[in-house]
Amino acid sequence: MQAAIVPFITVNGIYPDLLIIFLVYLSLRKGQVFGTVSGFVIGFFFDIFTGGMLGAAMFSKTLAGFTAGYFFNENKVQYNLNSYLFVLIVLFCGALDSMFYQILISKNIEINFPVLFFKQSILPAAYTSIISLIWIIFKPKREAHA
Protein backbone atom coordinates (compact mmCIF):
# COMPACT_ATOMS: atom_id res chain seq x y z
CA MET A 1 0.00 0.00 0.00
CA GLN A 2 2.86 2.35 0.90
CA ALA A 3 4.58 1.71 -2.42
CA ALA A 4 1.43 1.66 -4.56
CA ILE A 5 -0.95 4.33 -3.22
CA VAL A 6 1.35 6.88 -1.63
CA PRO A 7 2.85 8.06 -4.96
CA PHE A 8 -0.56 9.55 -5.81
CA ILE A 9 -0.69 11.71 -2.68
CA THR A 10 2.89 12.91 -2.97
CA VAL A 11 3.28 16.69 -2.83
CA ASN A 12 6.47 18.15 -4.28
CA GLY A 13 8.34 14.92 -3.66
CA ILE A 14 7.20 14.80 -0.03
CA TYR A 15 5.26 11.68 0.80
CA PRO A 16 3.63 10.38 3.97
CA ASP A 17 4.82 7.18 5.57
CA LEU A 18 1.71 5.16 6.38
CA LEU A 19 3.85 2.39 7.83
CA ILE A 20 5.05 4.70 10.60
CA ILE A 21 1.45 5.34 11.67
CA PHE A 22 0.89 1.60 11.83
CA LEU A 23 4.16 1.06 13.66
CA VAL A 24 3.43 3.76 16.27
CA TYR A 25 -0.02 2.24 16.73
CA LEU A 26 1.53 -1.21 17.36
CA SER A 27 4.14 0.17 19.75
CA LEU A 28 1.58 2.10 21.79
CA ARG A 29 -0.74 -0.87 21.90
CA LYS A 30 1.64 -3.75 22.55
CA GLY A 31 4.76 -2.23 24.07
CA GLN A 32 8.36 -1.36 23.32
CA VAL A 33 9.79 -4.79 22.51
CA PHE A 34 6.87 -5.60 20.24
CA GLY A 35 7.22 -2.19 18.57
CA THR A 36 10.96 -2.66 18.04
CA VAL A 37 10.53 -6.12 16.49
CA SER A 38 7.57 -4.90 14.41
CA GLY A 39 9.69 -2.02 13.12
CA PHE A 40 12.36 -4.50 12.08
CA VAL A 41 9.87 -6.77 10.29
CA ILE A 42 8.00 -3.89 8.61
CA GLY A 43 11.31 -2.35 7.54
CA PHE A 44 12.47 -5.68 6.11
CA PHE A 45 9.37 -6.07 3.94
CA PHE A 46 9.52 -2.41 2.92
CA ASP A 47 13.14 -2.83 1.78
CA ILE A 48 12.33 -6.04 -0.08
CA PHE A 49 9.26 -4.70 -1.86
CA THR A 50 10.63 -1.32 -2.86
CA GLY A 51 13.78 -2.78 -4.40
CA GLY A 52 15.97 -0.37 -2.49
CA MET A 53 18.89 -0.74 -0.14
CA LEU A 54 18.16 -3.74 2.05
CA GLY A 55 18.70 -2.92 5.71
CA ALA A 56 18.09 0.83 5.59
CA ALA A 57 14.38 0.77 6.47
CA MET A 58 15.01 -2.15 8.80
CA PHE A 59 17.39 0.05 10.79
CA SER A 60 15.32 3.25 10.78
CA LYS A 61 12.00 1.57 11.50
CA THR A 62 13.47 -0.54 14.31
CA LEU A 63 14.66 2.69 15.88
CA ALA A 64 11.29 4.37 15.30
CA GLY A 65 9.41 1.42 16.82
CA PHE A 66 11.70 1.46 19.85
CA THR A 67 11.23 5.23 20.31
CA ALA A 68 7.45 4.98 19.99
CA GLY A 69 7.54 2.22 22.61
CA TYR A 70 8.82 4.73 25.17
CA PHE A 71 5.35 6.24 25.20
CA PHE A 72 3.69 2.89 25.91
CA ASN A 73 1.74 2.87 29.13
CA GLU A 74 -0.41 -0.13 29.98
CA ASN A 75 -2.93 2.02 31.83
CA LYS A 76 -3.22 4.66 29.12
CA VAL A 77 -3.31 2.61 25.93
CA GLN A 78 -6.65 3.97 24.71
CA TYR A 79 -5.82 7.52 25.72
CA ASN A 80 -2.49 7.42 23.86
CA LEU A 81 -4.07 5.95 20.75
CA ASN A 82 -7.04 8.29 20.57
CA SER A 83 -5.61 11.62 21.68
CA TYR A 84 -3.50 14.18 19.85
CA LEU A 85 -0.49 12.74 21.64
CA PHE A 86 -0.61 9.99 19.03
CA VAL A 87 -0.11 12.62 16.30
CA LEU A 88 2.88 14.07 18.15
CA ILE A 89 4.45 10.64 18.59
CA VAL A 90 3.94 9.97 14.86
CA LEU A 91 5.61 13.30 14.08
CA PHE A 92 8.60 12.57 16.29
CA CYS A 93 9.06 8.95 15.23
CA GLY A 94 8.43 9.84 11.57
CA ALA A 95 11.14 12.50 11.64
CA LEU A 96 13.58 10.13 13.31
CA ASP A 97 12.79 7.35 10.84
CA SER A 98 13.12 9.61 7.79
CA MET A 99 16.36 11.14 9.01
CA PHE A 100 18.14 7.83 9.65
CA TYR A 101 16.72 6.34 6.47
CA GLN A 102 17.99 9.23 4.35
CA ILE A 103 21.41 9.09 5.98
CA LEU A 104 21.68 5.36 5.28
CA ILE A 105 20.53 5.48 1.66
CA SER A 106 22.46 8.63 0.81
CA LYS A 107 25.46 7.81 -1.33
CA ASN A 108 26.63 11.37 -1.09
CA ILE A 109 29.30 11.83 1.55
CA GLU A 110 28.63 15.55 1.89
CA ILE A 111 25.25 15.52 3.62
CA ASN A 112 23.52 18.87 3.84
CA PHE A 113 22.07 18.76 7.34
CA PRO A 114 19.54 21.61 7.07
CA VAL A 115 18.09 19.94 3.93
CA LEU A 116 18.27 16.52 5.55
CA PHE A 117 16.64 17.72 8.73
CA PHE A 118 13.96 19.97 7.30
CA LYS A 119 13.03 18.72 3.83
CA GLN A 120 13.74 15.03 4.26
CA SER A 121 12.81 14.54 7.91
CA ILE A 122 10.44 17.16 9.31
CA LEU A 123 8.31 17.72 6.19
CA PRO A 124 7.54 14.04 5.46
CA ALA A 125 6.95 13.48 9.18
CA ALA A 126 4.58 16.46 9.32
CA TYR A 127 2.70 15.13 6.31
CA THR A 128 2.48 11.70 7.95
CA SER A 129 1.22 13.23 11.20
CA ILE A 130 -1.45 15.16 9.27
CA ILE A 131 -2.68 11.84 7.87
CA SER A 132 -2.71 10.40 11.39
CA LEU A 133 -4.57 13.51 12.58
CA ILE A 134 -7.25 12.87 9.96
CA TRP A 135 -7.47 9.32 11.31
CA ILE A 136 -7.85 10.60 14.90
CA ILE A 137 -10.56 13.12 13.94
CA PHE A 138 -12.64 10.87 11.72
CA LYS A 139 -12.13 7.65 13.62
CA PRO A 140 -15.47 5.91 14.37
CA LYS A 141 -16.51 7.02 17.86
CA ARG A 142 -17.24 3.51 19.08
CA GLU A 143 -13.73 2.38 18.19
CA ALA A 144 -12.24 5.52 19.66
CA HIS A 145 -13.74 4.87 23.08
CA ALA A 146 -13.45 1.09 23.04
Binding site: V33, F40, T62
Partner: peptide
Protein backbone atom coordinates in the same frame (compact mmCIF):
# COMPACT_ATOMS: atom_id res chain seq x y z
CA UNK B 1 15.63 -6.67 27.29
CA UNK B 2 14.33 -3.66 25.30
CA UNK B 3 17.87 -2.39 24.74
CA UNK B 4 19.25 -5.85 24.00
CA UNK B 5 16.54 -6.45 21.38
CA UNK B 6 17.16 -3.00 19.90
CA UNK B 7 20.93 -3.42 19.66
CA UNK B 8 20.57 -6.92 18.23
CA UNK B 9 18.12 -5.84 15.54
CA UNK B 10 20.12 -2.72 14.66
CA UNK B 11 23.24 -4.85 14.29
CA UNK B 12 21.41 -7.29 12.00
CA UNK B 13 20.19 -4.33 9.92
CA UNK B 14 23.72 -2.97 9.58
CA UNK B 15 25.09 -6.41 8.63
CA UNK B 16 22.35 -6.76 5.98
CA UNK B 17 23.22 -3.26 4.72
CA UNK B 18 26.81 -4.34 4.14
CA UNK B 19 25.63 -7.30 2.01
CA UNK B 20 23.74 -5.11 -0.45
Amino acid sequence: KEYIVLILLLLISLIVLSFN
